[in-house]
Amino acid sequence: VKKMAKAIMADPNKADEVYKKWADKGYTLTQMSNFLKSKTAGKYDRVYNGYVIHLD
C-alpha cells in the first residue's frame, strides 16, 4: 500500500487507478489509515483524503 501511495504522490494522475484497486480489494478507511501511518505526520494525508473522496 505504501508503495502505491508513494506512486500517487509522485504522479497524482495514477490516483484513480490505485484507489479503484484498493476499493476492489475491500480496503476500509481504517485499514488505509493504519497502513499509511508514518513517523512523518501528515505525509500521506493527501492520499488518504483522496481515497475518502473516491469511496464517497
Rank of each mutant, 00 (worst) to 15 (best):
K14L: 14
A23T: 08
K21T: 14
D56S: 15
L29I: 10
N49R: 10
S33I: 11
V1T: 03
D11H: 08
Q31G: 02
G26D: 03
V52D: 04
H54R: 01
D16A: 13
Y48G: 01
L55P: 00
S38V: 06
K3E: 13
A10R: 15
N34M: 12
V18T: 09
N13L: 12
K2Q: 08
G26A: 05
P12L: 07
Y27K: 00
V18L: 06
D11G: 01
K2G: 02
V52S: 10
I8T: 03
V1E: 03
D24S: 11
A41R: 11
V47A: 05
K25Y: 12
V47Y: 07
Y19W: 03
A41P: 15
L29T: 09
Y48R: 00
L29S: 08
K21C: 14
L36N: 01
A41M: 11
S38F: 07
Y19C: 04
V52A: 13
G50Q: 05
K37D: 10
M9F: 07
A15H: 05
S38A: 06
L29Q: 08
Y44I: 02
D16Q: 14
D24Q: 11
A41S: 12
K37A: 11
A5W: 02
K39M: 10
H54W: 15
V47C: 04
M32T: 02
R46V: 14
V52G: 07
F35H: 06
G42W: 04
I53D: 13
V1M: 05
M4I: 05
L36E: 04
A15N: 03
K21F: 15
T30E: 15
D45W: 10
D16R: 10
D16W: 11
D45E: 09
M4N: 06
Y48E: 04
V47N: 00
D56F: 13
G26R: 05
K43G: 05
A5Y: 02
P12N: 06
P12S: 08
D24A: 13
P12G: 07
S33N: 10
I53R: 14
D11F: 07
Q31C: 09
K21I: 15
K43V: 08
W22R: 00
Y51K: 00
D11C: 12
Y27F: 10
A7S: 11
L36P: 03
L29M: 07
N34S: 12
H54M: 07
K37P: 03
V18S: 03
K2V: 09
D11I: 05
Y51D: 01
T40W: 09
I53N: 14
V1K: 03
A7V: 11
L36C: 04
Y51N: 01
Y48T: 03
N13C: 14
G50A: 04
S38Y: 07
V47S: 02
N13W: 12
K6G: 08
L55H: 04
Y19P: 00
G42N: 09
N34V: 13
K3D: 12
G50S: 02
T30H: 12
K14T: 09
K14R: 11
A41C: 12
D11Y: 08
K39V: 10
I8Q: 00
K37V: 10
K20A: 11
T30A: 13
Q31P: 00
N49P: 03
V47L: 03
I8P: 03
Y44A: 01
K37M: 09
D45A: 09
V18Y: 09
E17G: 10
V1Y: 02
A10P: 02
I53T: 13
G42K: 05
